[in-house]
């Protein structure tokens, strides 16, 4: 123990407080920036790819582009999906899919696993999330494979 026998003075104790606070705040922010698995079971990347590239299910390519040469019509309203798995962790990807509004209330990214706090939802969609928990896990698993 390097500090054995040297009782820290009151002054150094106080001086350390800001660091402790910063670490605490950092820890809280890190927690807010990611989410644990919704199902406890790893998703299926193959199914996830199908969700991402199927316009009516994932809707992803309306706004995002990605490494899908077979998909002719891709959007440019949002960051490209290529390399998503190296830029963001599993938990970070999950939070951004589940409810990106927690990070940026103004985001145009829909919250894929949230059904409350919405307005004038059509009858066919009321009380339903855009994707199921299993589908979110599948998409997360797929996005993690996009490494470059």
């Amino acid at each position: 123990m390097p500090r054995a026998g040297t009782a820290p003075s009151r002054r150094t104790c106080l001086a350390r407080w800001p660091w402790v606070l910063l670490l605490l705040a950092g820890g809280a922010a890190a927690q807010e920036d990611s989410l644990p698995s919704l199902t406890g079971t790893p998703g299926d990347a193959v199914r996830g790819r199908a969700i991402v590239t199927t316009r009516q299910r994932g809707l992803c390519l309306l706004c995002h582009s990605g490494p899908f040469p077979e998909e002719r019509f891709q959007g440019d309203l949002a960051p490209g999906l290529a390399g998503a798995g190296s830029r963001l962790s599993e938990g970070q990807l999950r939070l951004r899919l589940v409810d990106g509004r927690r990070l940026n209330p103004q985001t145009i990214m829909p919250s894929y696993y949230r059904s409350e706090g919405l307005h004038q939802v059509g009858p066919a969609w009321q009380g339903r999330t855009i994707l199921t928990a299993e589908e979110i896990e599948d998409v997360v698993a797929f996005l993690l494979t996009l490494r470059d």
Binding site: L59, L77, I108, H119, Q120, V121, W125, R128, I130
Partner: peptide
């Protein structure tokens, strides 16, 4: 006003984008 399950307003597409 944001609306619908996708939670988008007219302005978010037709003004902002």
């Amino acid at each position: 006003e944001r609306r619908g399950q996708l939670n988008l307003s007219c302005a978010q597409c037709h003004d902002d984008n």
